[in-house]
């Protein structure tokens, strides 16, 4: 296998990348799935559940590969399920944005749109990764994300440029979540090494295109971008808000209570 010719330090970096990517899709997928049965209308309920399903499916590919590569490092492979169900909060590498509570439908959509617009740019670069396994997962996932971003952008515009009440809620959602988007573009030493090896983009380089999309859509939605520049961060390093613990309590309950249970 191609990975075996790579130095162990690089494999460790790749595993970190896979955990970050897979934990983002896992936690957001779980969050979005919480809407199942609670959406304002049936069609949106189905759409949210389907988006969540795509994200969880992508998680299986990202975390599945992470577990496979771990075996090269220490001889012990973990499955995607084991990584999802048997790590504690500090081992999760998702950004804080995706663990934000769902709030109302507008808050959920705004979070989704800011994430989708970033996810698209990330996958566009990963599609051309020098790591073939990463490139093939990205090429698969991006086709689903094309639809995610169209849907969330469309709804942000329709609700932002909608009734007084929907506009008010979308502006409040944007004001609430904006300071959590910046972590998507914060690079650390892992990112810099992965970028130098052509495996993944430097997150900072994704920002101009993300901004181009986001600012245009928010403008169409007649929404005002908050002025603040403060960025909440920490999730990528395992420092999370209390919200992640509650997510894990629900997500992991069964495997914690009945270890190894299958159905």
């Amino acid at each position: 296998m191609a990975q075996q010719s790579r130095p162990p330090s690089e494999t460790a970096d790749v595993i970190e990348l896979l955990l970050r990517t897979g934990d983002n899709t896992l936690v957001l997928g779980h969050r979005v799935s919480e809407w199942c049965g609670h959406s304002p209308v049936l069609e949106e309920d189905i759409a949210l559940a389907n988006s969540a399903l795509d994200l969880i499916g992508q998680t299986q590919l990202w975390l599945g590969l992470a577990g496979e590569l771990e075996a090269l490092m220490n001889g012990q492979a973990r499955t995607a399920d084991q990584l999802a169900y048997l790590r504690d909060a500090a081992q999760f590498r998702n950004v804080l944005l995706v663990e934000r509570p769902n709030g109302d439908f507008g808050q959920t959509l705004m979070r989704q749109f800011l994430f989708d617009a970033w996810h698209l740019e990330l996958l566009k670069t990963l599609e051309n990764s020098t790591h073939p396994r990463i490139a093939e997962i990205a090429a698969k996932a991006i086709k689903e994300v094309y639809y995610h971003v169209e849907r969330s952008a469309d709804l942000v515009i329709r609700l932002g440029d909608g009734s007084d009440e929907s506009h008010r809620r979308m502006q409040a959602a944007l004001d609430d979540i904006w300071s959590y988007a910046g972590e998507l573009f914060v690079a650390d030493a892992y990112d810099e090494r992965l970028a130098a090896a052509g495996i993944a983009p430097n997150p900072a380089d994704l920002k101009p295109k993300w901004e181009q999309t986001v600012l245009r859509v928010l403008s169409e939605a007649t929404l005002t971008v908050p002025a603040g520049t403060f960025v909440h961060k920490g999730g990528k390093r395992g420092i999370h808000t209390e919200h992640l613990g509650f997510i894990l309590a629900q997500m992991q309950f069964l495997q914690r209570a009945y270890p190894g249970a299958v159905w």
């Binding site: 617009a117 698209l120 566009k124 991006i142 086709k143 994300v145 094309y146 639809y147 971003v149 169209e150 952008a153 469309d154 515009i157 181009q212 999309t213 245009r216 859509v217 169409e220």
Partner: peptide, 15 residues
Amino acid sequence: TAADGRLLARLDAMA
């Protein structure tokens, strides 16, 4: 007719 990520080009049709 698949979505292709060219979101901004498709915004007008969506709107």
